[in-house]
Amino acid sequence: MAIIITDECINCDACISECPNNAIYEPGEEWSYSDETALSGTVTVPGSGDVVDADTENEPLSDEFYYIVPGKCTECKGFHDEPQCASVCPVDCCVPDDAHQESEEELLAKKAWLYGE
């Protein structure tokens, strides 16, 4: 499953530089699948099958707190043994997102999709 940042976030930004997928964004910041990935142009999102433009700037998922884009979060699989955002969060607000449950195989496939592996 992906990780979510709860509303207990203190906006310290400790997590943002730790994310290998650039899946964490500042409050109010637009996001795209192409940010710091190999994606560009029209792509099919794993799991959902949605066809999107990877370069499109999407609306922020939060205007108040740092947030994680579930479609880019791999729980650091293929990079680290544990989610790095959770390991550095001083208030433990980076937690599993029950709304986006994925197997390790699915998370590794998402990583490969993000980086053209």
Score class of each variant (00 low, 15 high):
60 P>R: 13
21 N>C: 05
69 V>W: 00
84 Q>S: 15
12 C>T: 01
46 P>D: 09
106 E>Y: 05
66 Y>V: 02
83 P>Y: 09
108 L>Y: 08
35 D>F: 07
107 L>V: 04
28 G>T: 06
11 N>Q: 09
22 N>Q: 15
53 D>A: 07
29 E>Y: 01
20 P>I: 13
83 P>E: 14
50 D>K: 14
2 A>H: 01
49 G>I: 14
42 T>D: 14
61 L>Y: 05
98 D>L: 07
72 K>L: 00
46 P>N: 08
117 E>H: 12
66 Y>I: 05
9 C>T: 06
77 K>S: 15
64 E>R: 15
58 N>R: 13
111 K>M: 11
72 K>Q: 01
86 A>P: 04
21 N>E: 10
57 E>T: 10
3 I>N: 01
6 T>I: 05
110 K>F: 06
44 T>I: 05
3 I>H: 04
30 E>H: 15
18 E>V: 08
57 E>D: 13
102 E>W: 09
109 A>N: 09
44 T>R: 06
28 G>M: 09
38 A>D: 14
11 N>K: 10
69 V>E: 01
82 E>G: 10
54 A>T: 02
21 N>S: 03
78 G>M: 03
7 D>E: 12
36 E>K: 10
36 E>Q: 12
14 A>I: 04
66 Y>H: 14
47 G>M: 06
112 A>M: 07
6 T>D: 10
1 M>D: 14
110 K>I: 03
31 W>M: 12
41 G>K: 06
29 E>P: 03
67 Y>I: 06
68 I>S: 02
38 A>P: 07
21 N>F: 00
32 S>W: 00
44 T>Y: 04
26 E>G: 09
10 I>C: 11
85 C>I: 10
55 D>S: 06
48 S>K: 05
86 A>C: 12
46 P>L: 05
115 Y>H: 07
69 V>P: 00
92 D>P: 02
75 E>G: 03
50 D>S: 13
18 E>S: 12
75 E>M: 14
86 A>I: 04
17 S>G: 15
19 C>T: 01
17 S>R: 15
66 Y>A: 06
6 T>R: 08
109 A>W: 01
